[in-house]
Each structure stands twice: as C-alpha cells, then as structure tokens.
C-alpha cells in the first residue's frame, strides 16, 4: 500500500517535472527576446540617465554624475518646449475621438455600404505615415498647395504657411494625426456599439425616448469602457509621436514642433549625449508608466454596468 503511494507520488512528480520543462521550452524564445531587447535596455536607460557619456568616446569616458542630467533637464528650455508640445498634442485625442464616435454611430445605423465606409475611413491608418506625411506636405505647400489655393478662393487673402509657420506647424501635425487616427478609433467604437443589446433601444423607444435621449442615456454610458480605453491608447500614442515630426518638420520651425521622442533622438543620435538622452527617455517612460497605472486602478470605476 505505502509502496504503491510512493510510486504514484514519484510519477506525479516526474510528470510535473516534464510539464515544467515543456513550459520553459515553450516560453523560452519569448523570454530571451524580451530580456535582451526590453528588460536589459530599460535597466540600461535607467543607469545611463545618471551618467555623462559620449558613445563614440568608448566605455572609459563614461562618468557618473548623479542627478546632474535631471537638474539640467529642469532648466532646459528645449526640454520644456518638448513637454509642452506633447501636452498640446494631447488635445487632438478628444477631437478625433468625438469625430470617430459620430462616424461610428452613423455607420452603425446604415443598412448598406457599411464595410465600404469602414474601409474608406480606415485607409489613412493603414497607409504608411511617411507617404501620407509627404502628401500632406505638398497639400500644405504655402504658395502652390491646394489647401491654400482653396483658402484664397474663399477670400482669405493671406493664408497661413502651415508647417513652415511656427504658429501653425504644431496644429498642422495635429490635423494630420487626427486624419490618421480616426479610422482606428471608429472601428473600436463600432465594435463597442455592436455590443450594446438592441432590446435596450427597443425598450427606450416604447417609453417614447428621442434619438438624443437614447444616445445620452444608453449609448454614451454603455460606451464608457470603450471611450476610456481609446483615451488611454490615444494619450500613450501621442506621447510616442515621432514619424510625423521626423518626416515633416524635424522639430522646427524654431522648435515649435519638438517633442519628447524627437528630442531623445536629437540628443542621442545627433549630439551623441547618451546620458542626457537617457534622462529624457526615463521621463517619457515614467509618464507612460503612470498613465498605465492610472488605467489599471481606475478601470473598474469607469465601467457603468
């Protein structure tokens, strides 16, 4: 009897050991990849942000400077400019969310052509940002471009210079970003709309509710998880903006479109100030980290059913 149990326990243990081995094998590629390409680099970013180092000078030239980089950051006007621009850029998020919601409601009410409209509004999102940016650059051409041509036609004698104008460059980038982001937000909103049970609307109709009442009392509250998700995704995305800046403005004119990721790039790969760039990168990481935490901890409060 006791011998029997021992054998059974032994085989259980060897089974579990085999299961362990298989588990490690299956997740090993992913683990090695994320360790080498994400975990070690983020630790390195953290460490390097306390150093003063020019990459090409070799490892011997590395000097630990404590909080010096961060002290410099606080007084760095270009860093402040980048941070402010990032926050201004955030304003595009609620704008494209509102447009996307309106489009989603309209498309969801259609009987025909639903998928055609989905494809149409999704096209900018699927297109390469570089190509799209180049097209907009030509459309926004100050003297020859079609945008200013139309503006002159409707009586604006002195239209803005768009991406060449320090006052209009950032709004121009935001407009392009809105145009690109609508498709994604709209698709997610349509999915959210389709998960609302039809019976709710039918019940409301029996009670004589108008379209607007149905929207404010049923659609909007039931969509809050979707809205919250899109808001967070949009904020994170806009903090990471790089392509548009790199292709269209390179941070200019006169720093009017410099943003955190662009500034990291400039410091690290143009000025080769690895330590300082890492300090900016750490700020970016912390910003996104807190936004993600905020999402995790407030998630439940946003769900309204």
């Amino acid at each position: 009897m006791s011998a029997n149990i021992r054998v059974k326990g032994g085989s259980m243990r060897s089974l579990q050991r085999r299961e362990d081995a298989a588990g490690w094998l299956f997740v090993a590629p992913m683990l090695i990849g994320t360790t080498v390409l994400t975990l070690i680099p983020i630790v390195a970013t953290f460490l390097l942000s306390f150093a003063d180092w020019k990459f090409i000078a070799g490892i011997d030239a590395l000097r630990w400077v404590g909080l010096e980089n961060f002290r410099e950051l606080v007084d760095d006007p270009k860093f402040q400019r980048s941070l402010i621009n990032n926050f201004v850029f955030l304003l595009s998020v609620p704008i494209y969310m509102m447009i996307s919601l309106a489009l989603a409601v309209l498309i969801n009410n259609l009987a025909y052509l639903k998928s055609l409209f989905k494809v149409v509004f999704f096209m900018p999102y699927i297109s390469s940002v570089v190509a799209v940016a180049v097209v907009w650059q030509v459309l926004f051409h100050p003297s020859l471009g079609p945008v200013n041509h139309v503006l002159r036609l409707i009586g604006i004698a002195d239209p803005p210079q768009w991406i060449a104008d320090p006052d209009y460059a950032l709004p121009s980038l935001m407009m392009i970003s809105i145009w690109i982001s609508i498709g994604f937000n709209m698709i997610v909103y349509i999915a959210g709309l389709q998960s609302i049970p039809r019976e709710m609307y039918e019940a409301a109709e029996i009670d004589g509710a108008s379209g607007w009442v149905k929207f404010t009392r049923i659609t909007w509250p039931l969509l809050t998880p979707t809205t919250f998700f899109l808001l967070i995704t949009g904020i994170i995305y806009s903090f990471k903006v790089f392509d548009l800046v790199a292709v269209l403005t390179k941070g200019g004119p006169i720093q009017s479109t410099t943003m955190l990721v662009w500034y990291i790039y400039e410091k690290a790969f143009v000025n080769l100030e690895i330590g300082y760039a890492s300090a900016i990168a750490l700020v970016l990481f912390l910003c996104l980290f807190f936004i993600t935490l905020l999402q995790w901890f407030t998630q439940n409060r946003w769900v309204n059913y």
Binding site: L31, L37, I42, T45, F55, K240, I264, A281, F289, T292
Partner: peptide
C-alpha cells in the same frame, strides 16, 4: 507577470541601449 511588465516599456525609451547593444 515578467512578460506583462515589459508591455509597459515604450520602445522609444530604450532606443539608445538597443542601439548600443
């Protein structure tokens, strides 16, 4: 959980170490 944690790291923040690596 370890893999989950790396999801929070934006690639833009680790470009420099990746480049050096």
């Amino acid at each position: 959980l370890v893999v989950l944690a790396t999801f929070m790291v934006p690639q833009q923040a680790i470009l420099v170490p990746q480049f050096i690596l």
